[in-house]
Write a protein that binds this DNA or RNA. Structure first.
Lengths: 147, 147
DNA sequence: GTATATGCAAAGGGTTTGCACGGTT
DNA sequence: AACCGTGCAAACCCTTTGCATATAC
């Protein structure tokens, strides 16, 4: 009885290792996390795992479409399991809060980029920046340097 | 006879310095450039200017709304003069090419984010990622690590 | 047994910061 | 004269890489 993720790795010529299992489980459990956050989660089970292994593993898991990542700002990207709902990240540049919107909301926009500009957009890859309800109009201090 | 940019700086309590003038001119001349590229442009006139000055100056110029920046990928952000046409960056994740689209194309999308999610979006701040016409469907090697 | 993965440490890009000096006001 | 802005060097965060060892196949 092989799990799907093992198949995916094997099919692409990758080996099954504890690290790969743990990183995948961490991403699924966290629902979204930076490499650093994923490392910490993994280390709850296996404290010897190294950050560079997390980076290399995320790259492999992304290769075989088990995870994706999105950039929500200056800092480290956020990784998601592919079975998560695809969503758009909305980052408030004033208070730093990150919310999400269903990606369907962008369908017409994406369709137009495709027909008018021949560009096939992955809307979930990059966050949308702006201001959330409570911050709009407020002088704002760009508290978090993530713009 | 004070130029507009001098006024803007003074009004906000900043001083007028050669570095600030040169950085602003470099941004206007390049139309878009990374801090590093801006430094090189500035150094054609004043070779002693330092990178950290460019960073600090861009921050000041952004404070007073003379420049903005957009993130087109992993690397350094791209700075624009505010009198440039506002545009959306489209980055091909396969070949790395960056094209632009008029920001009006996103108006309906932005309106919906505003009405449905109470989020006021700055569409020009983050690039849209995906694949350009010539790369779509091609296996792709993610040649440029800027996703 | 052999190729791939891992850990570790070092290096790399991009950016920020502390400090003393110099320039703007 | 007072304060802000600059250059310089060091430090910072995030990520990648070289190499020897360990492990999956």
């Amino acid at each position: 009885m092989n799990k799907d993720w093992e198949q995916r790795l094997r099919t692409h010529g990758f080996r099954i290792t504890p690290q790969r299992q743990l990183v995948l489980e961490a991403v699924e459990h966290l629902r979204h996390g930076t490499p650093e956050e994923i490392l910490i989660e993994v280390q709850r089970t296996a404290s010897g795992v190294n950050l560079s292994t997390v980076y290399r593993t995320l790259e492999v898991l992304e290769d075989v479409d088990l995870v994706t990542h999105a950039h929500i700002g200056h800092g480290a990207p956020t990784y998601h399991a592919v079975d998560e709902d695809i969503h758009i990240h909305l980052v408030c540049d004033t208070c730093g809060k990150v919310s999400s919107a269903p990606s369907a909301i962008a369908d017409a926009f994406i369709a137009e980029l495709r027909s008018e500009h021949k560009f096939v957009t992955d809307i979930s890859h990059m966050a949308m920046h702006g201001e959330c309800e409570s911050c709009f109009g407020v002088p704002g201090e760009d508290l978090l340097r993530n713009t």
